[in-house]
Nucleic acid binder design. Structure first.
Length: 484
RNA sequence: GGGGUUGUAGGGUAGCCUGGUCCAUCCUAUAGCGUUCGGGACGCUGUGACCUGAGUUCAAAUCUCAGCAACCCCA
């Protein structure tokens, strides 16, 4: 009898593949945890479930909070006329192969084709030309959160490589001088790092090599993180556009001397890749693990019932109400399932804290608290439960960030030769001295078969060594990795 | 960019090679009722599927072609 029971419970486990099998884990998790429905019948387009959309809302409200300090949110059209889109030569080259075109209105062919924005420079800058008159109009710092379309020919992947990016936060700024714009790029990367700290995701900021910059930019700064399968994911970029677009879109201002001067611009963006990173970095074999700030449900209360357990339920409702008055997002699971089944269900959804209340707890005037990230059980007095929970929220966030950070740092690999990079690149992010020359960089990429992400800001990009191609001494350390 | 594999209930599968035995198997999910409840409960009664289109054939889940979609490998 006991044996058959044990056997049957073992057979009922295989809901989610282990995270070590990352690709399958990721796809299954999106569906089971109800982040995205990947079954929409068009390649590269996916559906946000209400739960996933809630995660998205909370994530993006952090971006808004951070940007609203000195940006304004606006909204530009989805459709861009062909003539505007085709103005900036470099920009076109970068995007023309992946643009969707609207060619008809009903049965009539349009005189001017309309592009579905792959990004909004060419939608926004004709308006900036009109808006910018005087140095007193500057700087302009505007952002929008919109969907964009790119006809990806490579493998599409939910949240990571999409034909419709549903959650593109793009900021577009205009400044008087090149230096001021450079300052803004710097600020943007700071904002993004702050944003990712709020998601407990560690990041590396680096300047992309010249051949890998945004089409039409002077230079590109990128924010990357490392995924569980040792590939990096670019989760934010900031571009210094110089006067390149100002020239083609004729964005000029009158300076204090009365001269007409070309403006300088930047743009910077973040997409739902931020949520791909959130899910992938923190999740485990049991499903999602969400930082409390993001979790749609922060606490779930599981009543442990025996026979008529009115008292247990009353206490649960009481705790629920008390938590609600503290603005804690709480759910009380009163369904008819057994406790174990409920644990698995809410763990899949990444609820940071579980409160179990049963007869044993009532006897002690206590509750059992279980952290999603660590899984350990603690007894806390019922009277202090709000404070105990709030304290743990902070602790959970910190330990998630710490865990993610040490996981990333543990996969930074110092190399001195190209052969070594080639050998180790599947294990993480490789560090290799690089003189910074284009020829050497391209040769390294060619030999390794992967890209140079850049020379990271801060300590990570500094050191001493010999460029493996030209053998010159250098203090620059570049990072190379397999990328999404 | 090149190559390969696959498409059967909400999810996972059997059947396909060798067409008829299939009003399609099993697990899970799900609806109702009852008993249960400290890590995926059980009983009873129900629900739900052959990707789309064309072709071959007396007969197609099964064979052929195309489309759409998914996955894997190489560049």
């Amino acid at each position: 009898m006991a044996e058959t029971k044990e056997k049957s419970t073992q057979e009922k486990k295989p809901v989610l593949p282990p995270k070590s099998n990352f690709s399958e884990w990721y796809n299954e998790l999106l569906l089971i945890a109800q982040i995205m429905d990947v079954r929409y019948p068009v390649k590269g387009l996916y559906v946000w479930f209400p739960f996933g959309f809630d995660v998205r809302k909370r994530t993006y409200s952090i971006i808004r909070e951070l940007l609203d300090k000195d940006h304004q949110e606006a909204l530009f059209p989805l459709l861009i006329p062909e003539n505007e889109f085709m103005k900036e030569a470099e920009h076109i080259k970068g995007f023309e192969n992946e643009v969707y075109w609207v060619t008809h209105g009903g049965k009539n062919e349009l005189d001017v084709k309309l592009a579905l924005r792959p990004t909004s420079e060419t939608a926004i800058y004709p308006m900036y030309k009109v808006w910018v008159r005087s140095h007193a109009d500057l700087p302009i710092k505007i952002y929008q959160i919109v969907n964009t379309f790119r006809y990806e020919t490579k493998h599409t992947r939910p949240l990571i490589r999409l034909r419709e990016i549903t959650s593109f936060k793009e900021a577009h700024t205009v400044h008087a001088t090149w230096d001021e714009a450079a300052q803004q790029v710097k600020k943007a990367t700071m904002i993004y790092q702050e944003f990712y700290r709020r998601l407990a995701i560690p990041t590396i900021v680096s300047k992309r090599p010249d051949w890998d910059k945004f089409p039409g930019a002077d230079y590109t700064m990128a924010v990357d993180t490392l995924m569980p399968d040792n590939k990096t994911l670019q989760i934010g970029t900031a571009h210094h556009l110089g006067s390149n677009f100002a020239k083609t879109f004729d964005i000029k201002y009158e300076d204090i001397n009365g001269d007409q001067v070309l403006a300088h611009q930047t743009c910077y963006g973040i997409s739902e890749r931020s949520i791909a990173a959130l899910i992938s970095v923190h999740g485990d074999d049991k499903g999602l693990v969400l930082p409390p700030e993001i979790a749609p449900i922060q606490v779930v209360i599981i009543p442990i019932l025996f026979g008529k357990s009115d008292e247990t339920l009353i206490t649960c409702h009481n705790v629920e109400e008390r938590l609600k008055t503290r603005n804690i997002r709480v759910a009380l699971d009163e369904t008819d399932e057994r406790p174990g089944a409920k644990y698995y269900k809410w763990e899949m959804k990444g609820v940071p804290l579980r409160v179990e209340i049963g007869p044993r707890d009532l006897k002690n005037n206590a509750a059992t608290l279980v952290r999603r990230d660590k899984g350990n059980k603690e007894n806390v007095p019922l009277d202090d439960i709000e404070i105990e929970i709030e304290n743990r929220f902070t602790a959970i966030h910190e330990s998630l960030l710490e865990k993610a950070r040490s996981s990333l740092e543990g996969r930074l690999i110092t190399c001195t030769t190209i052969e070594e990079v080639k050998e180790k690149i599947s294990e993480g992010i490789t560090k290799i001295p690089w003189c910074g020359d284009r020829e050497c960089g391209l040769a390294m990429e060619e030999a390794v078969g992967s890209g140079i992400l850049g020379i990271p800001e801060g300590k990570l990009g500094k050191g001493s060594g010999i460029c493996p191609v030209c053998k010159k001494e250098t203090e620059n350390i570049a990072i190379m990795a397999k990328t999404y």
